[in-house]
Design a protein around this nucleic acid. Structure first.
Lengths: 229, 229
DNA sequence: CCAAAAGTGTTCAGGCTACACCCATGT
DNA sequence: ACATGGGTGTAGCCTGAACACTTTTGG
């Protein structure tokens, strides 16, 4: 009872759109390919799925192998299956969407990659394969989700200030927000716990630090609460 | 330059969660498997992806082969890749989400299927493979999308009445809606064109027929309009 | 004329938007 | 003392929710 189905099969890969935020600009993590095809060109981190790992596991593994990243927020994005997206043979790719805090992670180039670097959205070069399209899909998803789910906190350090959070929203969504309205709204959810610390970082009033309360979010969500900014 | 990558490969399938609405209840299309594994059990329509077709094409083809359905609204849902989701070997499945108008389509059992039938949500049996989970994902997506995109019209005939549309929303979302508020909201978008016809169908006042205006929706969307019910 | 579903407006409350000044700090 | 960003309150408007009766038809 261990025969296999008799169908020709293409290869299966995962590719990750990794977002980071350094306090000023939204960034995307790319690797420079160390092997053919597209050797030397920039691409999304990713690679082949082995038969003994789930798709999620493959994405986590590839991310660590190629960039050294661990403990990232990861979710499936979309599966790309155009017939000729790989120049040599049929390859279907399951794309993932990842959020990390850049400064808390080393991002060294590793297996199959000559280099790994963070790019601003505006500086992104042409990418290998159909990765530009995948990236575009990831960006759209990030913008859509940021407003309706509390995923922005995945891009900030554990302790953050409201101005930081606001800059993140402005940077991703691409429009300015009113400071008073933004704070009022965000604080009204009761999802941010003010800490006994402030951040001093310049010749001006220090900012209150907060942390996000995931447990309370889960509780509220179960009562039908909808996060929306 | 035509070698293939040297990786072991699993098989790739597509499966479709097909929704229909008959005026009263939301329905889901299932097939009874004509071949092993799970022969005789109910499952989502689907099958293997061939190397020369895209994922979308595979989904459309399988849908027609197994159920006779054509011209359906189809979009990718999620990709399921747990290692042991198929009892015999590694099979990754790209799930699709389809909306059809039941009475306008023949749904005959065809290749690989003994039977094809519409089931009410409440009557759905245990399904083959992990199809129950896929279906659950599809339902969640339908409920989420129905409120924010004008996809409900894909489940109704070209000409429909407002009470029909309201029943659809109530049936899918699972709560009752206020008739006056619903009409006010829906009509306020200016996306429904009243026709010179009414639907007479009982000992009561006939209902105005409308049709959805997709072109106007596209135009509004580009101006930043957000559909929401 | 009766039963059944279609159609129609108003009021109230809560949330969103717009908007200007004081506060705490480093140099 | 001054420059820099952090922090605060209110008023008008608009939108969403609640709610009851009249209209048109078939039998």
């Amino acid at each position: 009872m261990s025969f296999t189905y008799e169908y020709p099969r293409g290869a299966l890969t995962v590719d990750c759109v990794v977002f980071g935020f350094d306090g000023g600009e939204l960034k995307i993590l790319l690797i420079q390919r160390g092997i053919a095809p597209f050797k030397g060109e920039w691409a999304l981190p990713g690679g082949f799925v082995s038969p003994d790992e789930s798709l999620d596991e493959a994405a986590l593994r590839e991310l660590e192998e190629e960039t050294g990243l661990r403990n990232v927020f990861l979710e499936q994005l979309y599966t790309f299956g155009a017939v000729n997206r790989d120049p040599r043979e049929r390859v279907v790719s399951v794309a993932y969407f990842a959020l990390v805090q850049p400064d808390e992670h080393t991002t060294e180039a590793q297996t199959d990659a000559d280099d790994a670097r963070w790019f601003q959205i505006s500086e992104i070069p042409e990418l290998a394969f159909d990765h530009s399209e995948i990236l575009k899909t990831g960006l759209k998803r990030l913008r859509g989700k940021l407003r309706y789910e509390p995923i922005g906190f995945e891009l900030l350090p554990e302790k953050f200030t409201l101005p930081q959070l606001q800059r993140l929203y402005e940077s991703v969504l691409g429009n300015e927000l009113d400071k008073r309205n933004f704070r009022k709204k965000v604080l009204s959810f009761g999802l941010l716990i003010p800490l006994d610390e402030k951040r001093r970082e310049g010749p001006h009033r220090p900012a209150q630090l907060y942390r996000f309360d995931p447990a309370r979010y889960e509780a509220l969500k179960n009562e039908g609460f909808l996060f929306e900014i």
